[in-house]
Design a protein around this nucleic acid. Structure first.
Lengths: 227, 227
DNA sequence: TAAATAGTGTCTCTAAGACATTATTTG
DNA sequence: CAAATAATGTCTTAGAGACACTATTTA
């Protein structure tokens, strides 16, 4: 049986979160009551491709129409599901948290954002989802070093300080301000919008992405970890 | 029906090659006579996992026991195979060409190395294998910029000049000699072997990889120059 | 000796990092 | 005014690129 699973990340209250659904209880249900990555099976009528299936499930769970989505990989074997040999195609999504509340749908008894600590989530996960989540985190943290991925965690308009802040959250380390700004400018990934964010201080210029679907690759990583 | 396909690269006569098999002719065979990536279906008895299946097929086709192997991604949809909705898990392998001759096995009428030009191969390919090969090439060429992947295309012992040469073949551009050498040295990925390669010139020191399974990631790409 | 390739040294340039400084708002 | 954050400038440093130079072998 071939399925599609999703690792959906967002940032809420300055912490990275992942969306999980609770497995239903029941006599023939595998991993009853455990938290799992949202997913399901391909509908050969509705889904023209694997990615179409992933987009459909993502819309069902979050209501987000066009988030950043990329394939993470696939996991398959005889040990991951008590019912026998199985394989799943896993996709990886980044969405802004503003105005998004997870929806319970179908057999997913409950869907909730879970804060991501060091290498995963506090709760015990179903199937091999610990390994999948861990791979997703590794992918995210690697790509943050040399791409514009964190921008997809922000709402449509954002300031440069806000952008730097999500980078710092995902990387879990501070970045240099002027280096960050020249890098972002040089990469030509954002455009000014004629508006500013004001507060009890100097107002900040607002920007939006030139392309909300494709990330930009920087020529270097942030900090050559030569150590 | 879920399958596993392989994109197996090697370098022969200073040119990148990919291994292809010819589809069998027959009344109910899809894409008869066209060249295709080697692959097949999972054997739930023999294959404990997707990767195990890929390694088994690779050994069958090439006889290579422990090559560099990584997952490339999966392709699935209703348009890729005339028989209907299908999905395949694709793996990506790099092997040295020395002493390796492709083996025809099972229904693969013929297996041959095909030179890779710009974006693929001269022959028409079966199914969606043009897209898969193109993705594999993109992955390879990207990773060559910041990893030690090309080293897996060389035999166990090699000189620094030979290593630089495979990089140049895959990248299709010359590299700076001294920069290349300091980078490789600093990355701590090779060790000297007490032997030299001699010819009609100064003999060259031979090296081997410290780890023939995992690539090393360099802190920067080769040429950040914004084209 | 010349030819050939191995291997190193020097200089420049780009972009990151550290950190100080200036700018512009509100209370 | 002070407080707060935005935005920029200056100096240093790491590593890539260009390219010249030295080293060591065979014929």
């Amino acid at each position: 049986m071939t399925g599609v699973d999703l690792v959906i990340f967002t940032v809420r209250d300055d912490v990275l979160h992942v969306l999980l659904t609770q497995r239903p209880d029941g006599p023939n249900e595998p991993c009853p009551g455990l938290w799992a990555l949202p997913g399901g099976f391909i509908d050969v009528e509705k889904d023209a491709s694997l990615e179409a299936c992933a987009r459909r499930k993502l819309a069902e769970k979050t209501g987000v129409a066009s988030p950043y989505l990329e394939q993470l990989g696939s996991w398959g074997g005889n040990a991951r599901d008590p019912r026998g040999w199985s394989a799943t195609h896993v996709y990886f999504a980044l969405i802004p948290s503003e105005g998004i509340e997870p929806r319970a749908g179908g057999r997913a008894a409950d869907a909730r954002w879970h804060p991501v600590r060091d290498h995963g989530v506090r709760e015990k996960l179903a199937f091999d989802h610990v390994a999948i989540l861990s791979a997703a985190l590794e992918r995210l943290r690697n790509k943050v070093e040399y791409t514009s991925l964190p921008a997809f965690l922000l709402p449509e308009e954002f300031t440069l300080s806000e952008l730097q802040h999500v980078y710092e959250i995902v990387l879990d380390r501070p970045l240099n301000k002027s280096a960050f700004r020249t890098r972002v400018r040089d990469a030509d990934l954002i455009v000014e919008v004629p508006r500013q964010r004001s507060g009890a201080n100097r107002p900040a210029q607002l920007y939006r992405l030139k392309d909300r679907r494709h990330p930009v690759f920087f020529p270097r990583t942030f900090s050559p970890r030569g150590e």
